[in-house]
Design a binder for these strands. Structure first.
Length: 890
DNA sequence: GCACGCCTCCAGGAG
DNA sequence: GTCTCCTGGAGGCGTGCC
């Protein structure tokens, strides 16, 4: 990649990966600088602001500095590995819009005389919802709180007086980003106190490629792509960062001390950076042994403190020293605890570098990323990391992504000797850092790319869900085009209706189609699927909140199949345009570039990150319009998208059948074809492209697929012998381990089946495995761990009012013993005879196990498999039914 | 009081 | 706090029978 800037100090690092991978010498080991970041220091930082003149820095964050009354930009200086602060000098002020004229506003008491009122401006905006120009009054304020958020804010006063307001709920720092069209995550230069985005050179071969591939696309999309390409082509800097983890004393093992009370001392703080710092600060306690320094603490600096205040002081120095600080659950625990504990020990507020929010804990100078929140984001979990981790604990994520575990400890934390404690604490900090460094800083690269696409500052990005990301992305594009951002109620009153009936009670509209599977074993099955079906529909059918049910009479004949909605033929929809851009950029450019053998591996890797980042936005672009918490909620958009998806697959199935192809199953956007001729498949793909304007692709080919009568329930063996399991109980995380193990053994046998003949042998083998497993169950050879059923609590215990599920019963049992449980906690229980029928694993004994219940578990799990093979569980365990089976086991 | 059927809730998964 | 569709286990409740 040749577009790195040659003027960079590290000219040898012209290729971005070199710059990226190697931390600059000057940025290493900057620790042990004295002094904490109190107000004086922050003032010094401010006065140093312009020292960055001319060099390339990356925009990480925009916040509002209440003291200065200005927007504050936080840049990352890759040479120094530090934060550079820049205060707005353009005089930008907070504002919102209203339909009332200045004259009318002057007449409302408390507006012009409001202490935070600045001035009015009459401006012309385009009202996208009604597709017309409007004149509105811009109410400019002196500070964000005067706009809204307080009882007597201007927004509230004007609303009370009957005025309509727009864009009054946007946080000031986001508003600043839109107006300056800043792109967080991108390179900038500060020249003569002006913030200028760095030009990114696009390789000429890429420009040529775009011209060719976008030839048939509308000019509008091509123009937009040219503006967006730098976001994907610009390098991401290596970012100096530190992970931090604290341990707090607790008199009751396993009980997490309350941060607000901060009653107990902080006994250990571990810091682990990506520039060589490994350090643990330990509080000496008279009743705890120091212990012996173990191998795990090699190269680690251990500092003992007698005074907890000193320990905190040094911790705060580290927080000030690094541009980015990582924690796992720091918002709700580590930083919150440090804040309250420090106050308790007599620190002044401005001596603590933390800014505590309602549900966040930020840093005054640097950026705090709470990785627990980032990895809890469902879109990240599912689309960015392919569902590799299922629970969002540090241990589970580290095991899935890093193949590393937390350090085990037998004794409670508070009873560990000091070196043991240090090692335990350090390991957590190490894992936390590694969650951002594995696969060449994949997580960090993703975060920067998400920031660029969403236009969110790093703190916001890592804390918000996908709807927040998409909201911000769309607001930015509205402001760019001078569109008035509609209020949720406006869209709702005009377009709040749906016209289809959902299959599931309580849902708002009809969703996807799932075909009835043809039960049995099917050899040589080709699975076709539509490449991002819903986004394609949004693109080709011009779906957007302003185009669906648009005001034009002549568009009403342009009906969306399966609905009574119509869509605009006169104007390109904004959502349609943006979704098309993201989809096409991913499909046409970056999915291909990620596999392009003619470029370097490092470039391919970068492009793979880009296409994964795009995927996250593309996949969520439909769902948000059906979510009533999304501010641009527009049910007809979501409903139309799903309807067009149904239409596409129905038409394709119809065509396939006409061509004589045998369709044995299909779900939402996929078709399973039994033993189809290759030419027919090619023809069907061509047909879909021509008639539906959607890419139909061969997704995979199964040696054989086993379907039962159940939807979303099958397994298939791929050509290379790998096995694909979908929806079967044997794969679910709440199935007992011993059943899963037997299930895996059975699958292993089935993966070797190549013909009908093989099935007969397999049948015998399966019989043995199931039988063996039952005998072991009967003989109590399985441990409680093997028998445990692990189910997550989805809400607090007291909200289970309608029924008491088994895992809730088990949870209540341990709550009696003083244990705390929270939503998200996994409850492990076993089924026992008598009583409530369940016991929490920690309270159960092996001899009270109800093996009949477990036999039922085995039965239902295997029945799902056996069904399709034309076998029954009863048959497997012998003609005499369960009775005979029991005897056989003895 | 209890078996039974039916409906609902809940968790986990597919797409 | 993106959506709907689907499966299986268990709880909850009314009904009919003894």
């Amino acid at each position: 990649m040749t577009y790195a800037r040659s003027s960079r100090r590290m000219s040898k690092g012209a290729l971005f990966h070199k710059i990226y991978l190697i931390p600059p010498e000057s940025s290493r080991f900057l620790m042990n600088m004295s002094g904490s970041l109190n107000e004086d220091k922050l003032h010094d930082e401010r006065s140093k602001e312009n020292l960055s003149n001319g060099k390339v820095v990356y925009l990480l964050s925009v916040t509002y500095d209440g003291k200065a009354g200005k927007a504050l930009l936080k840049f990352y200086d890759p040479e120094k590995g530090d934060i550079i602060l820049w205060h707005d000098n353009t005089g930008h002020k907070p504002y919102f819009y209203t339909n009332l004229s200045p004259e009318e506003l002057y007449r409302i008491k408390g507006v012009a005389s409001h202490p935070g009122f600045d001035h009015f401006e009459v401006v012309e905006k385009f009202d996208l919802l009604h597709l017309r120009k409007v004149k509105v009054t811009k109410v400019v304020a002196k500070d964000p709180l005067s706009v809204g958020g307080k009882k007597n804010s201007l927004r509230e006063i004007i609303k009370k007086a009957g005025g309509k307001v727009w864009e009054a709920k946007i946080k000031y720092h986001n508003c600043y980003i839109y107006d300056r069209q800043l792109i967080p995550g991108m390179p900038y230069r500060i020249v003569n106190d002006k913030v200028i985005m760095e030009k990114v050179k696009i390789p000429s071969e890429l420009e040529d490629l775009v011209e060719k591939l976008w030839e048939k696309e509308p000019e509008e999309e091509k123009e937009m792509l040219k503006e967006w390409l730098p976001l994907f082509e610009s390098e991401v800097p290596w970012i100096r960062r530190v992970a931090i983890d604290i341990e707090v004393y607790s008199p009751i093992p396993d009980r997490v001390p309350s941060p607000e009370r901060a009653y107990y001392p902080v006994i250990a703080v571990a810091v682990y950076s990506n520039d060589g710092l490994k350090k643990v600060l330990i509080l000496r306690r008279h009743d705890v042994e120091v212990g012996e320094r173990t191998e795990g603490l090699k190269d680690v600096e251990i500092v003992f403190f007698d005074d907890e205040r000193e320990l905190l002081r040094e911790t705060f120095e580290v927080l000030n020293e690094y541009p980015v600080v990582l924690t796992f659950n720091g918002d709700n625990f580590d930083f919150r605890y440090l804040w309250y504990r420090a106050l308790k020990l007599g620190f002044k507020r401005d001596e603590i570098p933390i800014v505590l929010g309602q549900d966040s804990a930020l840093l005054r100078k640097g950026i705090h990323i709470d990785l627990y929140r980032f990895f809890s984001n469902r879109s990240i979990q599912v689309y960015a990391f392919g569902g590799k981790y299922r629970e969002t604990t540090l241990d589970a994520i580290a095991q899935a992504l890093l193949n590393e575990k937390k350090k085990e400890h037998i004794k409670p934390i508070s009873e560990l000797d000091l070196y043991e404690l240090a090692e335990y604490c350090l390991k957590d900090a190490e894992l936390t850092l590694k969650l951002t460094t594995f696969e060449n800083d994949l997580t960090m690269k993703l975060i920067l790319l998400f920031m660029r696409i969403s236009k969110l500052p790093m703190e916001d990005l890592t804390r918000q869900g996908i709807s927040g990301w998409i909201k911000n992305m769309l607001y930015f594009e509205h402001r760019k085009r001078n569109y008035l951002i509609p209020e949720p109620e406006e869209i709702r009153s005009l377009k709040g209706i749906t016209v289809t009936k959902a299959i599931i009670k309580g849902k708002k509209y009809m969703g996807a189609i799932v075909m009835e599977p043809v039960p049995g074993i099917h050899f040589n099955v080709v699975v076709l699927d539509f490449a991002s079906l819903y986004p394609s529909m949004i693109k080709t059918w011009n779906l957007s909140y302003e185009t669906v049910r648009c005001p034009h009479e002549e568009c009403k004949k342009n009906i969306i199949p399966e609905t009574t909605h119509w869509v605009c033929m006169k104007r390109r929809g904004l959502i349609s345009l943006i979704v098309a851009l993201l989809r096409d950029t991913r499909v046409k450019l970056y999915k291909k570039r990620a596999k392009d053998k003619s470029i370097s591996e490092r470039e391919r890797e970068w492009y793979d990150v880009v296409q994964r980042a795009l995927k996250v936005f593309i996949n969520a672009s439909y769902g948000v319009f059906g979510a009533d918490t999304f501010p641009l909620y527009c049910p007809p958009v979501a409903e139309s998208t799903a309807a067009l998806g149904r239409y596409a697959i129905k038409q394709t199935v119809k065509k396939a059948k006409e061509m004589g192809l045998e369709v044995i199953y299909g779900d939402t956007d996929s078709l399973f074809l039994k033993n189809p001729p290759k030419e027919a498949v090619d023809e069907l793909i061509r047909w879909a492209e021509e008639n539906l304007k959607v890419d139909l692709e061969t997704d995979k080919i199964y040696r054989y697929v086993s379907l039962s009568t159940r939807k979303k329930n099958y397994f298939g063996v791929l050509e290379d012998g790998r096995i694909d399991v979908k929806g079967l109980l044997g794969k679910k995380r709440n199935t007992p381990e011993f059943v899963k193990k037997a299930f895996a053994q059975v699958l292993n046998i089935l993966s070797n089946v190549k013909s009908d003949e093989d099935f007969r042998h397999a049948k015998e083998e399966i019989k043995k495995i199931v039988h063996e497993s039952y005998i072991r169950l009967k003989r109590k050879e399985y441990s409680l761990e093997d028998l445990a059923i692990k189910v997550a609590l989805s809400k607090p215990l007291n909200e289970y009012t309608k029924s008491t599920p088994q895992h809730v019963k088990a949870a209540l049992q341990i709550v009696k013993f003083g244990k705390k449980v929270e939503p998200g906690d996994i409850i492990a229980y076993v089924k026992v005879r008598g009583g409530e029928g369940v016991k929490h694993i920690q309270l159960a004994r092996i001899d009270e196990i109800d093996d009949e219940k477990y036999l039922e578990h085995m039965k239902s799990t295997f029945e799902q498999l056996l069904d399709a093979l034309g076998m029954s569980f009863e048959e497997i365990i012998g003609g005499g039914g369960l009775e005979a089976f029991f005897k056989a086991g003895k």
